[in-house]
Amino acid sequence: MDWDKLRIFHAVAEAGSFTRAGETLHLSQSAISRQISALEESLQVALFHRHARGLLLTEQGELLFQTAHEVFAKLAMTEAQLMDAHEKPSGELRVTATVGLGANWLTPRIREFIELYPEITVNLILADRELDLGMREADIAIRLRAPVQPDLIQRKLMTVNHHVYASPDYLKKHGTPACLEDVLESNLITYGEEAPTNLSNVNWLMKRLTAIGRTKEPVFKVNNVYGLLLAVQSGLGIASLPDYIVHGHTNVVRILPDVGGPTFDSYYVYPEELRKSKRVTIFRDFLIQKVAEYSF
């Protein structure tokens, strides 16, 4: 497989169009189109569905992109390590993330980063409100939506999905629901009125149940996703949780496999003036590699 064509394919898949990829690669749209067509011809498969609004990956294209994305993430990480062989980055790196994402997904992975870069101190600031990066309340933010603040650089990290979860103890006592109607009288755990404003339709499960006839109020409300997780683990009831927060927890099981909630993208965000910061770029590449190792 031609390495240069694979690099161009990866850029096009990330950008979603030949034009935007051309701006990144400093190549003309026609040159990129020729390279993609040549790659498709050599593989004898179509990698993109072409339509008026842009490009969509085919099933085969998605498979190739996932592999290429992981390879390029590892290469970027290796490149950072080689570059820092002569000049090790050091100092404090202030990272802000939501309580759920920061405590449950990010924190367990910090040890590996510190082992790679022992001269860097990570200061993780957990807050469900969005800190002002422009005012340097933090160097980096991991956001659950695209930033609206100007002069911020953003890089998509992962897509977050919501599903329905309960504890084995709760299911043993109350039975495992086979369909949404079976949840009508279940103990439901939801966000309270003070739920994070950066998430839309957080109580989607309650709304769907109300639409099909539920009249029972939730047994417990809490304004934090980590609180939801702990309540589910305790056997209190059923709740919608983002998939990333249950990763590694054996006492939480997914139920109703055909029922899904909101899906949204998370982003690695930092100010323009930190574009050339080694600490910022190597932490970004490290997280991209960690995301590639686990499918959400």
Rank of each mutant, 00 (worst) to 15 (best):
I255K: 05
Q60C: 09
Y191K: 01
W204A: 08
M1L: 14
L157F: 02
H51A: 10
K172F: 07
N187D: 10
L25S: 05
D265V: 06
F65R: 04
A97K: 02
E112D: 08
I282G: 11
R155P: 09
N104V: 06
A231D: 10
E92P: 07
I189Y: 03
F65D: 04
H174T: 09
I189D: 05
A46D: 08
K221F: 10
Q60A: 13
P118H: 05
L152K: 09
T281Y: 10
V232L: 04
T159A: 12
T24Y: 10
D4R: 12
R53T: 13
F283Y: 05
H174I: 04
V202W: 10
T215R: 14
R129E: 12
S200M: 12
F9L: 04
T98N: 11
P168H: 04
L64G: 02
N123T: 09
F9A: 07
M83R: 15
A52M: 10
N223E: 06
D169R: 13
A127W: 09
D265Q: 12
R143E: 15
Y226N: 15
R34L: 15
L256H: 00
H174E: 11
Y226L: 15
L230F: 12
D84L: 05
R7D: 15
D128T: 00
F264N: 10
E115R: 14
K156V: 07
N223R: 02
T250W: 08
K216R: 15
H26G: 08
K88L: 13
R155L: 13
K5C: 04
A52G: 08
A195H: 09
E181H: 05
S186V: 03
I288D: 15
R155T: 14
F286S: 04
I153V: 12
A231H: 10
A80G: 08
A211D: 13
S17K: 03
Q60E: 14
G227I: 05
L171M: 07
K156W: 03
G54P: 02
Y294F: 11
P218H: 00
S277M: 07
F48I: 01
T67N: 13
K278G: 14
F113R: 05
I245Y: 04
K216Q: 15
Y267L: 07
G235M: 00
I238K: 05
L56T: 13
A13F: 01
R34K: 15
A73C: 12
S277F: 01
A138Q: 00
E293Q: 11
H86N: 08
P262K: 01
V232I: 07
V225Y: 08
Y191V: 03
H174G: 07
S186I: 03
I189Q: 05
T263E: 15
G235R: 02
Y268H: 06
T281D: 15
M77F: 13
F72C: 12
L6G: 04
A138Y: 01
C179P: 04
D132Y: 06
G61Q: 05
G261H: 00
L101F: 09
D243I: 00
F113G: 08
V45M: 08
A141G: 14
E40F: 02
